[in-house]
Nucleic acid binder design. Structure first.
Lengths: 131, 131
DNA sequence: TTTGAAAAACGAAACTCTTAGTATCTACTC
DNA sequence: GAGTAGATACTAAGAGTTTCGTTTTTCAAA
């Protein structure tokens, strides 16, 4: 009786919407729709459908206020970032975060500045652990 | 007359197959099928279809040898790793690789050892650039 | 040269994802 | 309380993904 393995990852459009909600904190269908970039012409009902799906998948909850729903993420962006990285690491980097970083820092398009920032992050984390 | 932006990313099953091909270097439908993990019971024709799709999408080429096709990746794993990281960075990390690494190194499940490896990688890269 | 096993080609069913039209509901106004 | 504007609910079409059955081809062995 194995639970159908539900994907814990967002689809393309779901991520697009969650990104807006993370930025807004919370919002109605209209709020999210208005937040979408220029040229992204999506029908109101489409946006409503996406948010409904996100609620079904429990990425957001909604409370009713007057006649409209206000949607709030149940999963923080940080947490989803971590989840996505774990997934990518597992699927493409043999579950070895170091090899993921290796690929990242060997990318020529990475700036010197970004590289410096990365080292600072790692150093800080190492200091905190041992301190 | 803009070219319809075709996704340059592999689907779930396509990635599964490319992973086998990357490990094998090259192989037939049978080779890849045999390489799949225990319990992954996939019909021969399914595997053939996936490889055909990968060929259509130009992730692999094939040459005929006797009556069978031998498939070879056209895209190295390294290159696809870079591509995937760029995509994730753009979609979820505001195109800022440092923030991606930040999320990675702040993950509690990351071992001290992995952290050390990561710093070594970054240091080596910084040395090479300035040396 | 027939034939048989393995491979490839073809076609399509089942499913998910994305989008949106139509119908229904809800709260406010007259 | 009837009308209306704006919201939600319902339904579904179209595209892409995953899977595999059936048909056709191909090489080699009898």
């Amino acid at each position: 009786m194995r639970q159908k393995k539900k994907s814990e990852l967002l689809t393309e459009v779901e991520l697009e919407f969650m990104t807006q909600l993370w930025a807004l904190g919370e919002g109605t269908v209209r709020d999210v729709l208005d937040q979408l970039p220029e040229g992204r012409n999506l029908a109101y009902t489409s946006a409503a459908t996406i948010l409904k799906i996100l609620e079904t998948k429990e990425f957001v909850t909604s409370k009713k206020e007057g006649k409209r729903h206000i949607f709030t993420p149940t999963l923080a962006k940080d947490a989803y970032q971590t989840r996505s990285l774990k997934d990518l690491s597992a699927k493409l980097f043999d579950d070895t975060p170091a090899s993921l970083v290796a690929r990242l820092v060997n990318d020529d398009s990475l700036t010197e500045e970004a590289l410096g920032q990365i080292r600072a992050l790692v150093d800080r984390r190492l200091k905190n652990d041992t301190g």
